[in-house]
Design a protein around this nucleic acid. Sequence first.
DNA 1: CCGGATCCTTGCCGATACTG
DNA 2: CAGTATCGGCAAGGATCCGG
Lengths: 126, 126
Amino acid sequence: MVTQQFRGSPEEADLTRADSLAREIFSDVADKWALLIIDAPGERTLRFGEVRKEIEGISHKTLTQNLRMLERNGLVERSAYPTVPPRVEYTLTEPGEALRETVHGMCDWTHRHLGHIEAARHRFDA
Amino acid sequence: MVTQQFRGSPEEADLTRADSLAREIFSDVADKWALLIIDAPGERTLRFGEVRKEIEGISHKTLTQNLRMLERNGLVERSAYPTVPPRVEYTLTEPGEALRETVHGMCDWTHRHLGHIEAARHRFDA
DNA sequence: CCGGATCCTTGCCGATACTG
DNA sequence: CAGTATCGGCAAGGATCCGG
């Protein structure tokens, strides 16, 4: 679990702080858009527009906001080239890559259980 | 990636349908609350109130909604015992367990990169 | 091409109250 | 104890315009 309870230990204060930090990070990252963005690049670095094309249905604004958030957390690195027209590239950092492994696991899981889930839905909706 | 583009293949229709289904499931599951709920039980089955206690900060309503959603997708199984007071237990199904492995990976990731992320945040906020 | 700001709509989520 | 319904605040996110 992410937020575990440690009571009565000497490091209680530090542990609960670490826990609330963990929960905060988890809340940032465990999000539909954030995970899709992490998953978007292969090993490659992508331009803003390329990321946008990879993720069908994400708006300009939402993508920018999420990229900022991921950059703040050190999961993606942003390189801006002051050319005209501007060119901005995004690359996964090492922690970002590590997270991407996990996300890839989730995507695998989704595809492996497509049938099971679709069946469950039909049963439930009846 | 979750939604890949398949153009010009004979199964195009089926593939894009499968893709949109995958995206739909991913949107359900790749959510802060949903993932925390999946992660909550160990191997155990939990009562409603127990799940609520495990996940600090989730409201009664949000928990119910998410449990319904997970039940609909066949990730948790709900057993209601018509006693007084009522007793309702939730267990992970096999697909639910499989997903839980992945979630566990995400939690591990979070804790392993706590320091790195906190540092990145301080750098960014300056 | 990219980012920021604005406006506006939508839906999430918490609080509360009531039923079985 | 668990579920449902209702209300209301608020933030997410889409559309658009402008500026670099």
